[in-house]
Design a protein around this nucleic acid. Structure first.
Lengths: 196, 196
DNA sequence: ACCTGAACACCGTTCAAGT
DNA sequence: ACCTGAACACCGTTCAAGT
């Protein structure tokens, strides 16, 4: 059986999931695949490209429904997609870092993020602003994931020091705040997001 | 003249500013200080601790005014402080990464962030939420800084590929969105943030 | 086409020994 | 107290040479 790019990516994701980014080195990856380091570079240009691929795999299980016409349900789907993204990243250590590398190295390559932008537009964000709005939401997701993993990492070292609980509750609260700011507070002062 | 911790930190900040985080190694730092690597470890526990100190220095020039009683002006000062933070980080490559390391390693050590939280409370955010609100704003700042440095890094490699301009304009827009979500849209549907 | 073996130029951290 | 010299256990990447 010869080595495949698929195996390389999958094993890389495995190491990341089990041990974190610090342990995901090309040499360790080669060891796990019972191969010399050089062999990896036939299947992969370099480590960065591999990380981009791994970031893509993190989002593989995500459902992709169609964009609705109704702004209210589009807003709901934004919240749903954001939660799904968070749920996909949360269990994998350092996933936010990996994600950021991918996003910066090849912006637009992560499909769910393009979809998030479409949903935001359908919910009432002006097309000239939707790119900014997308960033706003993604930053909140990544920040939340990083903070959560953070506290769980500290808890592993010192179980007594209970820091501020930045979990799912804080995430949905923040998401609502951002969406309120983007689309107007829901049913509080009459949503004027659906213009003329 | 013998080596000081101050020199170590200052030179580290210099390397970061001029060449970025990738070039900020303990060995390079030692070279720049005309010293053996081991010498650094007498003044500094390890590299992480040094990065926390460097992050602190990034924020050294920031003005610290008193927290106002009036919610409206407190809101203005939140915006002001956020802009000042962004301005302080923007010119230093990879400052967002360094900042995040510091924030995760020693939360609460960066004074301006505590101040940001106080200002948010003065502006009308409930004390139970002010920690979350602080994170929301800081994530926006760091995300904006990272994205900006990002595009300028790409522009250095390929000056033709003009990506979405995520500059200061996007930052202030996003900040307003977040503050609208937190405190209610300003003078649009009557700010109800100053309850009983 | 695909992989090995070996090298190149690096890392962070530690520590006996010197002054 | 403060630093050197040298080691330990790693990195990512390249590339002739093998099959």
């Amino acid at each position: 059986m010869t080595l495949t790019r698929d195996q390389v990516e999958e094993t890389a994701l495995g190491i990341l999931t089990r041990f974190g980014l610090a342990d995901l080195s090309m040499r360790r990856l080669a060891r796990e695949l019972h191969v010399q380091v050089g062999a990896l570079y036939w299947h992969v240009k370099n480590k960065q490209e591999l990380l981009v691929a791994v970031a893509g795999r993190l989002l593989d299980g995500l459902e992709v429904a169609t964009v609705p016409a109704d702004p209210e349900s589009a807003r709901d789907m934004v919240a749903e997609l954001a939660s799904a993204l968070r749920a996909a990243l949360a269990p994998v250590p350092d996933s936010a870092e990996v994600f950021q590398v991918a996003q910066s190295l090849r912006p637009g390559a992560l499909e769910p993020l393009n979809r998030l932008r479409s949903l935001l537009e359908a919910a009432g964000v002006a097309p000239e602003r939707s790119g900014w709005a997308q960033h706003l939401v993604v930053n909140h997701i990544l920040g939340s994931v990083a903070a959560t993993q953070e506290t769980s990492r500290l808890a592993a070292v010192d179980p007594d020091a209970a820091p501020s609980p930045l979990g799912e509750e804080a995430f949905t609260w923040g998401l609502d705040v951002v969406l309120d700011g983007l689309l107007g507070a829901r049913a509080v002062c009459g949503h004027s997001a659906d213009g003329p």
